[in-house]
Design a protein around this nucleic acid. Structure first.
Length: 316
RNA sequence: GGCGGCAUAGCCAAGCGGUAAGGCAUGGGUCUGCAACACCCUUACCACCGGUUCGAGUCCGGUUGCCGCCU
């Protein structure tokens, strides 16, 4: 008599998602699926605030450490992997719980988000990039507009402009974005809210904690491995320390940047979750008992549409 | 006590008679295969009082505060 097929726990960095996930997994006989774009990388543990094995409390965790830092990874791959995992976990009679702060990743799984059949075309991508270098952002944007005037991407956002062209030049229609509203499962999305001041304090002290836990060594290992210009080291905590290793600024400045970038990231996460999906927002600083009761109330709501409607009403 | 310098947004800072650049921070937002990415938008009664002028952050005088040097 499972009433909810999938639970997701989202929220900004340092809001307490991990702790809540374990609690819920125990209560609902769940297994946890990583919902974070950087925790998929092996050897990136401290900086990504990955859960440690001794914290898992025996709960199975999926899609952590599935790539080496030199490898790339994408939402589309993620979506595929998670949907498989969900089925698998459900077949075991257990509840899948997706936990993470990467809005697009979570959204792509929980909603009918359809990626283009067009695989990444390295060759075309290269050509387009060369063209961008030559002609500049404005010209590329004009070309995109000539291909499809309805696409609305800022000319300076060259990465998105190029990707859009890549798809169109491969002779494919852009996907209808409205599908992204349609839920794929009978799902409950829990968002952890923390007052801004408090959150920023938590972030600062989390960064201090990471440094004490050996973040510098962790990043140094990747640095010494010769990793450069790859997706993984664009992660917060890694790119700032790389700058320090490169001698661009002293360590204290690197740490200050790390904190600042984490704060900005948290803000963007709020923006995304707030505007992209219906969420049951809970105050992470409130009494856990009350939050659990609130979750139970939604859990017992068997009417999927009503649940979605109510989730959307909890505004932060 | 004397002499000199400086006072512009939360911070840094341009401005040199015609109605306040920019950066950082903050806040808001965009997003369909790099999303911890990439990108967009966002904030001023110029220390105070008086004067000169059609017009003053900009010039003059005074007050206050800070910083230097001197006694």
């Amino acid at each position: 008599m499972i009433m909810v097929e999938v639970i997701a726990i989202v929220g900004p960095t340092a809001s307490g998602k991990t702790a809540l996930s374990i609690e819920l997994a125990k209560r609902f006989n769940g297994e946890i699926i990583n919902g974070d774009s950087m925790q998929v990388y092996r050897g990136m543990d401290i900086g990504t605030a990955k859960i440690r094995p001794e914290e898992m409390g025996g709960i199975p965790h999926h899609l952590l450490d599935i790539r080496d830092p030199e490898e790339s990874f994408s939402v589309a791959e993620y979506q595929l992997l998670v949907r498989e995992k969900i089925t698998e976990i459900q077949q075991r009679g257990k509840l899948p719980i997706i936990v993470g702060g990467t809005g697009l990743y979570v959204q792509s799984v929980l909603f009918d988000y359809r990626f283009s059949k067009q695989q990444v075309n390295e060759e075309l991508r290269h050509t387009l990039h060369a063209e961008l270098e030559r002609l500049g952002p404005e010209a590329m944007h004009s070309k995109l507009m000539a291909l499809d005037p309805k696409i609305d991407i800022h000319p300076n956002n060259t990465r998105r402009v190029l990707r859009a062209m890549e798809i169109l030049l491969s002779g494919e229609e852009k996907e209808d974005g409205s599908l992204a509203q349609a839920p794929m499962y009978d799902e409950l999305i829990i968002g952890l809210d923390v007052p801004r001041d408090e959150l920023y304090k938590r972030i600062d002290s989390r960064v201090e904690g990471m440094m004490e836990a050996g973040l510098l060594d962790e990043v140094r290992r990747l640095y010494d491995r010769g990793l450069r210009d790859v997706q993984s080291i664009k992660a917060i905590g890694y790119k700032e320390l790389y700058g320090y290793f490169d001698g661009m600024y002293p360590l204290d400045e690197a740490i200050a940047k790390l904190k600042r970038n984490s704060r900005k990231y948290a803000k963007r996460q709020f923006t995304y979750f707030r505007n992209k999906m219906p969420i049951l927002w809970l105050d992470a600083t409130a009494d856990p008992k009350n939050n659990l009761e609130e979750i139970m109330r939604f859990w017992q709501e068997s009417d999927r549409n009503r649940r979605i409607e109510q989730m959307a009403k909890t505004i932060r």
